[in-house]
Design a protein around this nucleic acid. Structure first.
Length: 863
RNA sequence: GCGAGCGUGGCGAAACUGGUAGACGCAGCGGACUUAAAAUCCGUUCGCCGAAAGGCGGUGCGGGUUCAACUCCCGCCGCUCGCACCA
């Protein structure tokens, strides 16, 4: 009999031994000359409080890769840190009357302890928190370098302003147009904001996406769409009877002869100007304001507009006048906030023109269509074709017509070719306390000037209060008083802090050299570790974080702070993992309930406290607000970290969501017990890798187990490489089942079983490191399975000598034959035809064709 | 509305570049052990017909390509995610 596996003793024991031996520390480049490097990183967490089992999946995936690379001889960097600035800390300060700093550091301490429970192979000596002055002082230095390089500038920008709380609101703090806390209607204000010139790299950021081969296509597409490059023309229409022009952008200047109106955004300057005189235009603007700002909202809204009463001249024909409308579907943020409508060849313009009975003219003839009968009254044609009804463009294919139209516009001085980007510069100013202070000084004489580098860090003051609305930095009694670095006169500090996305745009570089006091990081160390070889995180960061980080590596490179990475890309390989989801429970009174506050009794779920039935709701991402979370500490106490790790990687593919269920936990728990019981019962003195196998393993069950074990090495290795953890798990089950089935106690069986147990222990070690160490020790090895070289399959054993070939007749399987691997096609064909079942099926039919796919299948076509 | 992705047993899912659909796990069913239960172990489990051998059907729906389709193509239906009516 074997003893029961006691995770409560085993798990802490091994964590302590790993820590004592320091096996998770990344080696300095000089100490690892013979090893390739592997930088494995999970997106660092915001220290929001406590972690639950849902968070563990992300870190476990990264940990499997990190442990796997280490076993394969890499010098692994697998660090952890805290994205520690942000709004929740200020909210806590206001609601719970605690200081943001102590709230944040308390959370970090709690979450660090929790993460350590998971047994992650993390180099904790490199831990960083972005709210440490030792971190943000370097961020301020980078800001100054960017400023010097022209990547930082100031610009007036619209913000959401809460007139009661006297503060700027994030979009998420605006609920139904009102401030979330004050409930006051939000106003739009223009503030002078600090900007990062992301658009300086628009072309490079877009083009380099093509090189990110190990990123998910989905993320690459989202980034490309976000950057949104379109080639076209900028042109202007002269307003009739006035000395002013309306500028528009178009990607299809070839359709200019199909123009029937010009449309302006509701907040186009001209629209606003006319609204001052015309109540119906003012009313139109008012109506648009109620539409909601999200694009999907605007889209579902019906198109509407108002005739502004202004007319413009067509650039190609001064006698042709077009009406100017205000239209709800024109975006003020894109292009010039104005467009010309060509209803015959654009969906939106068509809908608009149909509604307001504006002319719909066909000017592009689809391939194969007849110019006499083709019309676009019912539906626009948006594809490429040949221009017609278009004077000098007639007969030109769309692409050529575009070029010709642009040439004409340039000749007339009415427009030119241009590239339009959707990407906008990044506004980084936040009027908040808990963020990195922007190192700038406002001097009445000298203007806005940078802080001197030797004066860094500009540290956050700690004696702040949150009882007054607004930015605590702005109303701190002394903090903002400063001396102008240029003229030495009295001046004021900038009180804006940086968007927290700035903090996370370079933290992966700091991990390469986290203790460096004199610089953000040493260039050589960064060059050694970068790029991150495997980045793991949620798809919600597909655009902003990942794009800003790409901007930062380019900016740092051009400021001379970063050498390499070769193509400026911070993350060589990206994996976006699925969430852990769980059922939600609500009491009779509508309160959300924690899973442990309920139980299933007689097939129905009831609330423990009241015994009343519980409403079981949707299966959703684990979140504190819905209380559908399973606390990590309690779970590790009850079942162990390995069970949690194994469970979140079993069953579902890593990119898909996995549902946390009691049944799944039970399965993982059972597997842990089963592995231990096998190892404990049979695992004394397992053969070492390379030990000569006794002759009795050359046949029968012992041979079969050895073959299966060596094939398992190949499968699991390949599965981990390709992020197929769920399949690796399935292969591990198969190996365990096979080991359990082998019953003999002879020399051959002992060898095969011992070897298979050793292989199993190694294969599961990245997934369940504590259990694997305990097994490793039981098998007679030391010091750690974690540092043992990854097993190598014996090619001879793993190779198949015979294959089972299905034989189909007319595509239906009728029999199977065993054939030597690589057998000659003619032999296989004869074998197949000779098979009794096949022969019986073919009776009375003529064989027309026999397809033999070597080592795969035989298909006989007959009738 | 546009873009992307997904749809396989009771459930989570496998299936390499088109080549035995349902590996593996959960749940179920039958059995062993036990005074009993838990735990563990063994067997079984896509549907229909059949005592069995075996046959027929089957990967959201309808077509198509192919010796062969979960996989490729066309058209639908449903779900999920992203968004920016991008002119």
């Amino acid at each position: 009999m074997s003893s029961r596996y006691n995770h409560r003793e085993v798990e802490p024991k091994w964590r302590a031994r790993w820590a004592d031996a320091g096996i998770d520390r990344a080696l300095a480049p000089e100490a690892a000359k013979d090893k390739p490097k592997a930088y494995i990183l999970e997106m660092f967490p915001y220290p929001s409080g406590r972690i639950h089992v849902g968070h563990s999946r992300n870190y476990t995936m990264g940990d499997v890769i990190a442990r796997f690379r280490r076993a394969n001889g890499f010098n692994v960097l697998h660090p952890m840190g805290w994205d520690a600035f942000g709004l929740p800390a200020e909210n806590a300060a206001i609601e719970k009357r605690v200081h943001p700093k102590s709230w944040t550091y308390d959370n970090i301490a709690a979450m660090r302890a929790q993460l350590k429970l998971l047994g992650l192979a993390i180099d904790w000596s490199r831990e960083i928190a972005t709210c440490d002055a030792e971190y943000y002082k370097h961020q301020q230095a980078i800001f100054l370098a960017f400023w010097k390089k022209g990547l930082v500038y100031r610009k007036k920008q619209k913000v959401n302003w809460d007139p009661v709380d006297n503060t700027v609101l994030a979009n998420e703090q605006v609920v139904d147009g009102k401030g979330w806390r004050s409930g006051a209607p939000v106003e739009t204000r223009e503030l002078e904001q600090w900007m990062f010139r992301v658009t300086a790299y628009a072309d490079d950021l877009l083009n380099a996406i093509g090189k990110l081969e190990k990123w998910p296509d989905k993320v690459r597409l989202m980034q490309a769409n976000w950057i949104g490059k379109s080639q076209g023309a900028r042109l202007h229409f002269d307003v009739v009877g006035e000395d002013r022009k309306i500028e528009v952008f178009t990607t299809r200047p070839d359709t200019l002869f199909g123009a029937s109106f010009v449309a302006l955004a509701p907040d186009h300057p001209l629209t606003k100007e006319i609204a001052a005189q015309k109540p119906e235009v003012a009313k139109f603007i008012e109506q648009c304001a109620h539409l909601g700002t999200s694009e999907a909202d605007i889209e579902k809204a019906e198109k509407f507009g108002v005739d502004l009463g202004v007319r413009v001249k067509h650039p190609f024909d001064p006698n042709w006048e077009l009406p100017v409308w205000g239209a709800n579907f024109v975006l003020s943020q894109y292009g010039t906030g104005a467009l010309y409508g060509c209803p015959g060849h654009d969906e939106r313009d068509h809908a608009f023109a149909s509604k307001y009975k504006l002319p719909i003219l066909p000017v592009v003839l689809p391939p194969g269509a007849d110019a006499e009968t083709f019309n676009v009254q019912a539906e626009p044609f948006v594809g490429d074709g040949v221009a017609f009804n278009s004077k000098f463009l007639d007969g030109l294919p769309s692409r050529e017509a575009i070029a010709r139209a642009i040439k004409e516009l340039e000749k007339l001085g009415a427009g030119e070719a241009t590239t339009q980007w959707r990407l906008r510069d990044w506004g980084v100013s936040r009027q908040r306390y808990w963020g990195c202070p922007i190192p700038a000084i406002h001097c009445a004489k000298c203007g806005v000037v940078p802080v001197r580098e030797q004066d860094l860090p500009i540290a956050l003051p700690e004696d702040v209060t949150f009882d007054k609305p607004g930015n605590p930095l702005a109303h701190h009694p002394t903090w903002k008083h400063a001396t102008c670095p240029t003229c030495g006169g009295k001046a004021e500090r900038e009180t804006d802090t940086l968007d927290t996305f700035v903090d996370s745009s370079w933290y992966f570089l700091r991990f390469a050299d986290p203790k460096n006091d004199g610089a953000p990081f040493d260039k050589k160390l960064a060059a050694y570790w970068m790029p991150v070889d495997q980045y793991v995180g949620g798809v919600e960061h597909a655009v902003l974080h990942l794009l800003y980080a790409r901007f930062f590596t380019r900016g740092l490179r051009d400021c001379g702070l970063l050498d390499g990475p070769a193509n400026g890309e911070p993350f060589a390989s990206l994996f976006t993992q699925g969430m852990v989801v769980h059922e939600t429970y609500q009491s009779a009174s509508g309160q959300w309930l924690l899973p442990e506050e309920t139980e299933v009794k007689d097939g129905a779920r009831i609330e423990l406290a009241t015994g009343k039935p519980v409403d079981t709701g949707a299966i959703e991402k684990m979140s504190k607000s819905k209380k559908n979370v399973v606390d990590l500490d309690a779970f590790v106490t009850d079942f162990g970290a390995d069970v949690a790790r194994w469970f979140v990687l079993s069953d579902s593919p890593p990119e898909r969501d996995v549902e946390w269920t009691a049944a799944g936990v039970k399965g993982a728990w059972g597997f842990v017990q089963r592995v231990w019981s096998l190892v404990d019962t049979h695992g004394r003195a397992a053969p070492k890798p390379g030990d000569a196998a006794p002759a009795s393993t050359n046949e029968g069950d012992a041979l079969a187990l050895r073959q299966l074990a060596h094939r398992a090495i190949q499968h699991v290795t390949d599965d981990i490489e390709h992020f197929r953890f769920n399949v690796a798990v399935a292969k591990s089950y198969e190996l365990v089942n096979a080991i359990a089935r082998l019953k003999g106690q002879d020399e051959g069986a002992l060898f095969a079983r011992g070897e298979a147990l050793r292989i199993l222990t190694q294969l599961i070690s990245p997934f369940m490191p504590h259990l694997a160490e305990e097994c490793w020790e039981r098998l007679g090895f030391e010091p750690f399975v974690a540092t043992a070289p990854w097993p190598v399959a014996d090619a001879k054993l793993a190779a198949r000598t015979t294959v089972t070939l299905p034989i189909q007749v007319n595509g239906k399987k009728r029999a199977e034959i065993e054939a030597a691997k690589g057998a000659a096609e003619a032999d296989v064909r004869d074998l197949a035809l000779a098979h009794p079942a096949v022969a019986q099926f073919l009776a009375g039919q003529t064989v027309r064709k026999v397809i033999v796919v070597p080592d795969r299948i035989v298909n006989i076509v007959a009738n």
